[in-house]
Structures are given as structure tokens and as C-alpha cells.
Simulated assay, not measured.
Amino acid sequence: MKARNNNTLTLDQFKDKHYGKVGTKKRDELEEGYENFKIGALIHEARIEKGLTQEELAAKIGTSKSYISKIENNIKEVRLSTLKKIIELGLGGHLELSIKL
């Protein structure tokens, strides 16, 4: 991505400048944190789309509202088994994983 003008950086340029290039420790830690954040944001969006409150989603999978909140707000990492429950039991969806090499 190119910068729009001399004063504006793309997200990748900003990350390069402040966190280093892809493959450096600081940048990898940032990217890993972003992936966790993305999962929480996706759960939040799907829950809203289904018209569920955090409390309703929590009840469907047998956990607490505060746990759902912590996942959505990237305070707590979600285990794969819990993610599967949230997606399948709570949201009526299907979880698909892929590994890219």
C-alpha cells in the first residue's frame, strides 16, 4: 500500500516504523496480539448480528457474561474448544481452521 501523501502512513508503514519489519520480535508480538483481537472482534460482530446479548451467548454455552466480555475485549485469550462452543452452540455457525505455510 502506498501512502496517500507525505504526512499519511498506511497501517503497514506505521507498523514498520514503530514496530519494525515483519519477522522481528517486536513486530511478531504485535501481529500475534492483533490476531487475538481479531477473534474477539469477530465474535462480537457475529453475536450482534444474531441479536444476542453477552449474557444470552454465555448462557447458551454454559459460561459467564464477564467471560464473553473478556474474550470480545481481548482481555482473555479463548481456547480452541471454547471458541468452537461459542461459534457452534452459541452462534449456530461452523468453525473452520486453516494453516497457511
Rank of each mutant, 00 (worst) to 15 (best):
5 N>S: 13
83 L>S: 03
1 M>E: 10
69 S>A: 14
77 E>K: 13
28 D>Y: 08
96 E>V: 13
42 L>T: 10
11 L>F: 14
66 S>Y: 06
33 G>P: 03
93 G>M: 12
35 E>P: 01
86 I>K: 00
70 K>G: 02
37 F>K: 14
41 A>T: 12
18 H>C: 13
71 I>K: 00
52 L>S: 05
84 K>H: 12
45 E>H: 11
46 A>T: 09
100 K>N: 13
45 E>G: 05
75 I>C: 07
36 N>L: 10
82 T>N: 04
18 H>S: 09
53 T>L: 09
69 S>P: 02
65 K>A: 08
97 L>I: 15
20 G>F: 04
58 A>Q: 05
90 G>H: 03
48 I>P: 03
56 E>Q: 15
70 K>R: 15
75 I>M: 11
86 I>R: 00
79 R>W: 00
13 Q>N: 09
90 G>K: 01
43 I>P: 01
72 E>V: 03
90 G>E: 02
62 G>S: 06
61 I>Q: 03
79 R>A: 08
27 R>N: 12
58 A>L: 06
99 I>Y: 14
22 V>W: 07
21 K>L: 13
87 I>R: 01
68 I>K: 01
10 T>K: 10
80 L>R: 00
97 L>G: 07
15 K>D: 09
69 S>F: 09
39 I>N: 02
33 G>L: 07
70 K>L: 07
51 G>D: 06
11 L>P: 03
75 I>P: 00
87 I>L: 04
20 G>W: 04
66 S>T: 14
85 K>W: 00
12 D>S: 14
61 I>D: 01
92 G>I: 07
69 S>Q: 12
90 G>T: 02
9 L>C: 03
97 L>C: 09
3 A>I: 04
10 T>W: 09
99 I>T: 11
87 I>S: 01
42 L>G: 05
2 K>H: 14
45 E>Q: 15
19 Y>W: 12
14 F>R: 11
55 E>P: 02
96 E>L: 12
92 G>D: 05
53 T>Y: 06
97 L>S: 05
21 K>E: 13
45 E>C: 04
36 N>E: 14
27 R>T: 03
52 L>P: 01
78 V>T: 05
23 G>V: 07
